[in-house]
Design a protein around this nucleic acid. Structure first.
Length: 572
DNA sequence: GCCGTTTTCGGCCCGACTGTTTTCAGTCG
């Protein structure tokens, strides 16, 4: 199996870190960081391209030298220069720079002067007052390092977007109530709708910056203040999340919002474009000869570099600027365009709602249809349906449908893909259904080839309609099972079946990149709630966030189709 | 290490805050 783009990106990012520690030229470091980010965002597998003799220098950011290193990686799994640096510089330096306040320069100085071999060594040095004796260090930095180590031990990590939303809403409500505040917006990865969020970047429009900053720092949830200036402050909340606030004036709002929304590499690209036009973009606006010429809205900023508005979800430097230049930005999908939901569970198994209750809820959400997909018998913990109970449910659906107006219950099942690739119920009952969601709920650890074959074999079944939560991952708790997603997507295209984007906030399974790959191969994606209760039905909005990050438009999504068209598509 | 409508050298996004200095380096986003 050739190395993945992610593997190559990780090695280049690692190289960048080691070069930083080695005091290398900053632009050389940036070249590796750049290349890493670009490679991470490619839908084409670079290793396969190399093996087919393709010239990879055609990708922006990859020149002759890096192309050579990519060939080395494809052949050997790493490259020599990195191996040499890894041999020369100790791993502890990598750990040290993960501590806030310790960058490569300071880490290196501490390591060289105090013979630090582990984080406990570092902790001891700080506690014994040794760090403050080094040139350029003092008591405050020493204290900051101690705090940083404690913070690291608290194991705080990124949280789900849906959890960040709760924190963000409460903070925004608090800030909006401060006198003089005209507008509050959460920027950063939260606004780009990344599936997990590490911190929150909040922007407030107000003419009295200092007063707002003061009020922000006394928000009841604050446990620690990291930085306090006249225009920006950083705090840590109880629970560990960092919040950065920036206060700006009305005329800078668009420029600041663009800047703080990122991503960093997107910003760099936009600012480079500005340079070429002899203008300068910073968070205060767009400047021509020191003259403020734009910046009130994001649209103005984009216009100054000759681009249409690019939605935040696309600002990841994965081709959005080229698409904008070519006038080929997608019209991203919205929640309102969904005409139904194709994955939900009832009280017949592990759900909470009855068929009439689900129908009523779906109607409230403005749907035309909703697919009933309880578990199949193999999922015994959820009281999965066998053939007999499923037949009874089909009758119940007919009865319910007979009484319904404006909404249709579709007959489905979330049927298990068994480890031999067969489906968990016989064709004799599957053929009675409108569609199936076929999912893996067992044997997550199969090697990639076997797991992929298992799914491909299942797709050969003519009653296979939608692949449910295609990689099985749970964000932050369970990794994706090993599957070759490109092969699966190609097979889906060939067989006329579909992939689910499971919208449960802990799953968001497909990833953004796999959404794009599906779109490229003309495989429609079903954005589905996997709801077990009323609130769960609304999870589709998290799925739409992810779909938008995956460049999906209404036309790329199965359940934007009217019922009549949908029925035709569901028949393979 | 990459790149080119300032093209094969000489640039490379931009600014705030902190701490340790006494004018600025380092870190961060």
């Amino acid at each position: 199996m050739p190395v993945s783009n992610h593997d190559i990106a990780v090695l280049f990012e690692r190289m960048a870190v080691f070069l930083e520690l080695d005091g290398a030229n900053a632009f050389r470091i940036r070249a590796y960081q750049n290349a890493g980010r670009i490679i991470e965002g490619l839908t084409r597998n670079l290793a396969e391209a190399v093996l087919q003799g393709e010239d990879v220098t055609r990708f922006a950011g990859i020149g002759k030298d890096l192309a050579g290193k990519i060939r080395e990686i494809v052949a050997s799994g790493t490259f020599q220069q990195l191996a040499e640096l890894e041999a020369r510089l100790p791993k502890i330096l990598l750990e040290m720079i993960s501590i806030p306040g310790l960058g490569p320069k300071r880490a290196r100085r501490v390591w060289e002067n105090l013979s630090i071999h582990s984080i406990p060594d570092l902790k001891a040095a700080a506690e014994n007052g040794k760090i403050r004796t080094l040139p350029g260090f003092g008591a405050k930095l020493e204290e900051q390092i101690q705090k940083g180590i404690a913070f690291r031990e608290s194991q705080y990590n990124r949280i789900l977007w849906s959890e960040a939303e709760i924190i963000a809403r409460s903070l925004c409500a608090y800030l909006e109530n401060i006198p003089g505040v005209q507008k509050v917006e959460v920027a950063g990865s939260y606004r780009r709708k990344k599936e997990t969020v590490g911190d929150l970047d909040i922007l407030a429009v107000c003419s009295q910056a200092e007063a707002v900053n003061r009020a922000f720092r006394s928000y009841p949830g604050v446990s620690e203040i990291l930085a306090q200036g006249g225009t920006k402050s950083s705090v840590i909340l109880h629970g560990g999340m960092q919040i950065d606030l920036r206060v700006i004036a009305k005329e800078s709002y668009g420029a600041a919002l663009h800047y703080f929304t990122g991503s960093q590499s997107h910003n760099i690209a936009i600012r480079k474009m500005a340079q070429q036009r002899r203008i300068k973009i910073n968070e205060y606006g767009v400047f021509k000869n020191q003259l403020h010429v734009a910046g009130k809205t994001e649209e103005e900023v984009f216009r100054q570099v000759g681009l249409p508005y690019i939605p935040p979800e696309l600002r990841e430097m994965t081709g959005e600027i080229e698409a904008a230049q070519a006038g080929r930005l997608p019209q991203l999908a919205s929640r309102e365009q969904l005409r139904g939901d194709l994955h939900c569970h009832t009280d017949e198994t592990d759900g909470a709602l009855s068929l009439p209750e689900i129908a009523a809820a779906a109607h409230e959400l403005g749907y035309e249809y909703i697919g009933i997909t309880d578990h199949s018998q193999h999922v015994s913990v959820a009281m999965g349906l066998d053939e007999k109970r499923l037949r009874q449910q089909l009758l119940a659906i007919d009865k319910t449908n007979a009484k319904l107006k404006n909404i249709t219950l579709l007959k489905g099942i979330e049927v298990d893909i068994l480890d031999n690739g067969r489906l968990d119920l016989p064709d004799s009952i599957l053929k009675e259904l409108d569609f199936t969601v076929c999912s893996i709920h067992s044997k997550f650890n199969l090697p990639e080839d076997q797991q992929t074959e298992r799914i491909l074999r299942a797709m050969d079944n003519p009653y296979f309609t939608i692949l449910g939560h295609p990689t099985g991952r749970l964000l932050g708790s369970r990794p994706a099972y090993a599957v070759h997603m490109e092969r699966i997507i190609l097979k889906a295209a060939e067989c006329g079946c579909f992939l689910e984007l499971n919208a449960h906030p802990e799953r968001l399974d497909l990833s953004d990149m796999h959404c794009r790959l599906a779109k490229e191969k003309n495989v429609l994606v079903a954005v589905s709630s996997d709801a077990h209760n009323r609130v769960g039905l609304e999870n589709v909005r998290f799925g739409i966030n992810q779909a938008r990050r995956g460049w999906l438009e209404a036309k790329d999504i199965l359940n934007t189709r009217p019922l009549k068209v949908l029925r035709r598509l569901l028949r393979r």
